[in-house]
Design a binder for these strands. Structure first.
Lengths: 126, 126, 126, 126
DNA sequence: GTGGTCTAGACCACC
DNA sequence: GTGGTCTAGACCACA
């Protein structure tokens, strides 16, 4: 269910959180769906249960999942909306990154080309 | 000369390194210009000399500055070229960020508009 | 595991880095193998943890090892390739040294003999 | 008379010492020839007199020059012999360097080729 | 437990 | 005066 790289600089709990949100956006995890239990996931990934716990706390505080004491964690019903709203705010990150690249001499064309690549489009001559 | 936020999760030495490179790209620090001495900057910023030292070592190993024992640290003569070369490689970061935004429903138009804003151009409705 | 000479003009952290790379080239440290923890090695060598830390940072930035916060440091999977690539560039050192020896009257024969000795071959006279 | 690079990692006093010995080996400085005075050389090179003094002390202790209090420094009469004798001992350095290169996968052929290049010879088919 | 950052204060070589 | 190394001891985030 998750692809964890233990040698990555990105903390494991962060990798879990990110991938969970990705699965939600892809529609593979739907509102109300249960997350694996802390213990079972820790076994499956070969990590410390504390790490899983931390990932779940993080997701809970972001409003992506909601943990029900004694029952488990579930995808919250407005998870997708929350994530999409957050994305708008992340346009600020994009702005900052582009600003820094611009300063270092990267042209607007190189950047917009990169954006187009993400959307699988060449130079616009469809 | 530098704006340090000791509460940031970005290490102080990294903040110094980043801002130094920014000043170089802005043309405010030119090749051959001396950096403040380790001790004087540590006093000015209210940090430990070791922290400044670490920042300077980092910049030295990146080829941005050139430290000369007994004399001081100086902007290396091809600093700007080095920085611009590194920026090209950072286009990968842009790609990754856009990919993640796309998944969260941000449109290509919103992204390219953001890029244009960075270059001081609106969306054409002026 | 390491032989440190605290009186050498070669910094301790550099000695550790060098010897680590030697062990890798000898095949005694393999990709994925864990390095001793910063604290344990500092005790073993009788040095300050910071010194070990510096050695590990150096190796990490060279791509020789890969440090994972909270887990430890591990030989990176392409460590050997990295080291062998660097060696090719070091042929320049050899050139410079030979140039200087030549100037001082050392003959080509004496130098090539020395090279052969390294490879376990005498000068042909059994 | 000397080419000093103040940005080099090699200490200035060391650069002066090295170049002096090179001039001797090239026959451009002969036994009995006077070295420039500390003050005049410090002015010419734009360095601190202490630095020149240190270079001369170094050369004196190596037996390359001999300083005569109140008169100046002069190339010692067996300077060339001393330098050539030292070179033989430096074959040990060559051995060590080659050993390390060998360990990193550099072949004997690559090394002997480098040696030949120093002597301006191709592949031996003269 | 791990690595990473920071402070405080010392010593060295070099200029 | 400069940068560079080292020790001592602290705190943090992560597993």
């Amino acid at each position: 269910m998750f692809q964890i790289d233990p040698l990555s600089r990105i903390p494991i709990y962060e990798q879990i959180a990110e991938q969970t949100e990705k699965l939600i956006l892809l529609g593979l995890l739907l509102p109300g769906d249960p997350m694996p239990s802390v213990r079972s996931l820790s076994v499956e990934l070969g990590t410390n249960p504390n790490t899983i716990q931390k990932a779940y706390s993080e997701l809970d505080s972001r409003g992506t999942i909601c943990s029900v004491p004694g029952k488990g964690c579930f995808i919250s019903k407005d998870a997708k909306a929350v994530l999409e709203k957050r994305a708008k705010q992340r346009l600020g990150q994009l702005y900052t990154l582009c600003e820094s690249l611009k300063l270092a001499g990267v042209t607007m064309e190189e950047m917009t080309d990169t954006v187009r690549q993400v959307f699988g489009k060449g130079d616009g001559n469809t």
